[in-house]
Design a protein around this nucleic acid. Structure first.
Length: 893
RNA sequence: GCCGGAGUGGCGAAAUUGGUAUACGCACUAGACUCAAAAUCUAGCGGGCUUAACGCCCAUGUCGGUUCGAUUCCGACCUCCGGCACCA
């Protein structure tokens, strides 16, 4: 060991040692409990960013901690390696997507290794490799058999000029992002996974994970699924002009079905409002007036425009001249088309109750439709619950609950009773039923892309849609395809790929040329780690039974909805296939905050400029709010906090960090700087503090190591001093604090605790060569505990220092070292300081034994000289004594 | 608009079931060492008033409440951040 701390030297050394000895390769010791520590896998862009460093530093700390606590730890990593950037590189530079991806993986693996992360690299997976995507296809076939994968026509954005499908983003504003021509909708056959088959399970099983998942993630998933309890009600079309003429039996079979959550307001309906795409409108296009047709077109075009969330869209619509009958009141109502009704939700038709729904109110006001109040507050005369402007007619919708009025037989009932009774009535009469609708849709998985798992389906002229046989998997991607960038699947141009024979009749047939959404890969990747070499199954049920579910999952909260819903869905499918035996794959989830950087813009040009933070002074107003910035060379700048990235010029390259400060310092700092769920504003100068801390620990060990070694042969003595007790107390308190924090997934406070212990060791003023055996032991205990507890945060430094104590360089884990345990006896003090308050204000402190009872503490407090000054000549009203905590005296006069 | 979350020094942040507010770090100031600088070490570091020993007052977004005692609990308000959004 060198007297000076050289991060580079020891980091390279230990990384090599770990790799050679397979230190982090997973093995199963039956005597130990298991722990599956998982972090979200990266996309191999070629560059690690600070968000990754944060994510993986936390995961690594957790994995190290659990190993030191005596768990069999599985801590794997892999690559989400299918996706658009590889294809873009192919389009732009003619790169081969596979080579491009493999090179990036190689580069990023190097970066991860330089961080010294304790992964079991033998279990690595990569989505783009056939041995992995084979099982995407395997799952697809299973789901097809189970009726969970199906094909249907849907509308996609289509550019006629480019002959290309466009994503919603690419079709923004109704204009093709590439050529500028108008976007049309095109019907395209797409494959779907039936996520909606598991909607209720996805909601109800949240109860199983409630304790371990952040509340806001569950809430967002709940909102996304959007369960809504209500009823369907049929409104018959009544005017003969629009009856379907070719209906032989009954001319009035046509009806509009609406979905409502407020059936009890049905006597207040003034119109049925439908979406412009509603089938009834399509069916009667020929019967509608030219004005109505024009309006429909207008509304449809408006809908294509990009949604601006800040601006509320003005209500628009038109009376179709159709009439429908309110089945409760018998009233004949107009049927309107409204731009605020969405075809995608419910039935694409609503009953408009302006008195009790804000949107309907706005619509009625604009078009002068009648507004009839049918609900009044339950508590009359209570100003707060009164509807707005009730005396002279409503001035706004009254959407609270209350009693029914103007509602025929139901007048006078409470909304809750009426809701139930009216639903039952509708069902009995055959014009309605209770219903639950959801916002969640089936998962469209077809992508017209090259760089994804091919969908294992064959189209045969005589047999139709035929799944590929299991023994023919994987359906391999060709090496290359003509990339036109038009959005049409490149595989459709590779005859060697799509030309095949029908597994059924052996006639010539054509393969599906779309590939799967990359979210498919990330839905089950962490089960592949459990059994990465399996060629028959995605993983064996036995391996899954031992390691899964995941004990701890860590990743960015941008995946709170999509990825984490898909993977929950996938687990339920795997359970139904028989691969796993549980409902929920992830016990505990930690959503880590983003790493952001300060970004500066030139005030005049508005252009982004790069300045190191040290060359910029940030200007704040009196309240401390940032109002601007100025560079040292006098240029006025605009200041912003933005997600770190190279293109924004606020990015920090992890390699550069490691090069300057070392991986340990970078990791330590990123954990120390802020609670893990907070956003972290990267700040360069803070990391130097971490380096200083590591150097101080290093020097302490260096200073004491010889004395500690020599003390090992000395006879232990019972002799003790105040200094020794103080140091040992701090040591054991620190062990307790760090253990509790890590169990609670806090990573910033343990680092602070390590620093405090290090400071305490520094304050131990005895020189090593004069230290007694007992003193040397106390220091040894403190330093050894410090070093082992440092391992989750700064493993290289910890390993190097530990080998000084161990006398060999096998490493912490190989030596069987364990996270230290604290001794509660040693945490206790002989004497503690008890604050004394008079009338709620701190006036003095008295020293007492921690075992001192209330009477003794009261006596000590009342006899304290300073306290006497405050109590003298006054009446003592009350004395509150909290043993071990404080004494509070109340006086009068 | 609806639903969450958060406001503590110059900055990132601590604070157990309500019990000594500001731990730890950054930045800053002064001193020691040095020919000098860096590094390191020592001391100081919420605001104010007296002082220069002690001490006192005010401070956890604002206002109020409960309590011997509130950053913590309750009510109202302000500000910021995040999610969702014509979801019937």
């Amino acid at each position: 060991m060198d007297e000076k701390y050289f991060a580079k030297k020891i980091e390279a050394k230990w990384q090599k040692k770990w790799a050679e000895s397979g230190a982090f390769e997973t093995d199963i010791d039956d005597a130990k409990p298991k722990f599956y520590q998982l972090e979200m896998l990266p996309y191999p862009s070629g560059n690690l960013h600070m968000g990754h460093v944060r994510n993986y530093s936390v995961g690594d700390a957790s994995a190290w901690y659990k190993r030191l606590k005596g768990f069999n730890v599985l801590h794997p990593i892999g690559w989400d390696s299918f996706g658009q950037p590889a294809e873009d590189a192919a389009i732009k530079r003619g790169a081969n997507p596979r080579d491009w991806t493999e090179e990036n993986i190689k580069a990023m693996r190097g970066q991860l290794e330089r961080l010294g992360l304790s992964y079991d690299w033998t279990r690595q997976m990569a989505a783009h490799r056939p041995e992995y995507y084979k099982f995407d296809q395997w799952f697809f076939l299973k789901m097809y058999e189970m009726g969970l994968a199906y094909k249907k026509m849907t509308q996609v954005n289509w550019c006629e000029f480019d002959q290309a499908t466009l994503s919603n983003e690419q079709a923004s504003g109704g204009i093709c992002w590439r050529c500028g021509s108008a976007v049309t909708k095109k019907n395209l056959e797409q494959w779907f996974f039936k996520t909606t088959a598991y909607t209720d399970q996805l909601l109800d099983d949240m109860a199983e994970i409630e304790a371990g998942w952040p509340a806001n993630v569950l809430k967002r998933q709940r909102d996304w699924i959007g369960r809504s309890e209500g009823a369907f009600v049929e409104f018959q079309i009544s005017n003969s002009k629009f009856q379907i003429s070719d209906s032989k039996e009954n001319k009035s079979t046509e009806s509009i079905r609406v979905f409502t959550t407020r059936i009890e307001t049905i006597f207040g309906v003034n119109a049925v409002v439908v979406a412009a795409e509603h089938p009834i409108i399509q069916a009667h296009l020929g019967d509608l007036s030219p004005e109505v047709i024009a309006k429909i077109k207008e509304i449809k075009i408006e809908k294509l425009k990009p949604a601006d969330r800040e601006v509320e869209i003005e209500k628009d619509g038109v009376d179709t001249a159709l009439k429908a009958v309110n089945p409760f009141s018998g009233e004949e109502l107009p049927v309107w088309i409204g731009n605020y009704v969405m075809m995608e939700y419910g039935t694409g038709a609503v009953m408009s109750v302006p008195a009790h729904d804000e949107r309907d109110f706005e619509f009625a006001k604009k078009f002068g439709l009648p507004i009839k109040q049918v609900i009044e507050p339950q508590r009359r005369g209570d100003a707060e619950s009164e509807p707005p402007g009730v005396a002279g007619g409503l001035t706004a919708a009254f959407s609270d609950y209350g009693m029914l009025i103007n509602s025929g037989d139901w007048s006078g009932k409470t909304y809750a009773d009426a809701k139930i009774e009216m639903s039952e009535f509708a069902k009995a009469k055959g014009f309605g039923e209770t219903a639950t609708t959801y916002r969640l849709r089936d998962w469209g998985v077809s992508r017209q892309r090259f760089w994804g798992s091919p969908i294992p389906i064959i189209y045969c002229k005589s047999c139709g849609v035929i799944p590929e046989k299991y023994e023919n998997l994987p359906v391999r991607l060709p090496d290359m395809a003509p990339f036109t960038g038009t959005g049409e699947s490149p595989l459709a141009k590779v005859a060697e790929f799509y030309e095949t024979v029908c597994p059924n009749c052996n006639e010539a047939a054509k393969r599906e040329t779309d590939t799967m959404d990359t979210f498919v890969d990330s839905s089950w990747y962490y089960f592949r780690y459990l059994d990465p070499q399996n060629t028959e199954l995605p993983f064996s049920p036995d391996a899954a039974a031992y390691w899964s579910p995941v004990d701890q999952y860590i990743g960015g909260d941008d995946h709170a909805v999509m990825h984490l819903i898909y993977t929950r869905f996938w687990t339920k499918v795997m359970r139904d296939i028989g691969l796993v035996k549980f409902n929920e794959p992830i016990k505990r989830l930690l959503a880590q905050g983003m790493v952001v950087g300060e970004t500066f813009y030139d005030d005049e040009s508005g252009k982004r400029v790069y300045y190191p933070a040290s060359n910029v002074t940030v200007e704040r107003d009196a309240k401390g709010k940032v109002i601007g910035a100025r560079s040292t060379d006098g240029i006025s700048l605009k200041w912003a906090i933005e997600r770190m990235s190279k293109s924004k010029g606020n990015g920090v390259d992890p390699d550069e960090m490691i090069d300057i400060y070392g991986a340990d310092a970078a990791r330590l700092f990123i954990l120390f700087a802020a609670p893990i769920e907070n956003e972290l504003v990267w700040n360069e100068s803070g990391i130097e503090g971490s380096v200083r801390f590591l150097q101080r620990v290093w020097r302490s060990v260096w200073k004491w190591k010889e004395r500690i070694q020599s003390s090992k042969s000395e006879v232990q003595s019972e002799e003790t001093t105040l200094e020794i007790r103080k140091l040992r107390q701090k040591t054991h308190q620190t062990i307790q604090r760090i253990t509790e924090s890590l169990e609670d997934l806090q990573f910033n406070t343990p680092v602070a605790a390590l620093m405090e212990l290090s400071n305490e060791i520094g304050d131990f003023k005895i020189e090593p060569d004069q230290a007694t055996t007992a003193e040397a032991f106390a220091v040894s205990e403190a330093l050894l505990s410090l070093v082992i507890m440092l391992a989750p945060f700064a493993p290289h430094t910890a390993e190097e220092l530990f080998s000084e104590f161990a006398g060999n360089s096998d490493g912490i884990l190989a030596n069987g070292a364990r996270f230290p345990e604290f001794d509660p006896e040693l945490i206790k003090s002989d004497e503690i300081e008890i604050p004394v308050q008079v009338n709620g204000k701190l006036r003095s402190r008295v020293m007492a034994s921690p075992d001192a009872g209330s009477d003794l503490l009261q006596e000590l407090a009342l006899n304290d000289e300073k306290i006497k000054e405050y109590t003298g000549g006054k009446e003592i009203v009350k004395v509150v004594v909290v043993p071990n905590r404080l004494v509070s005296i109340v006086v009068k006069g």
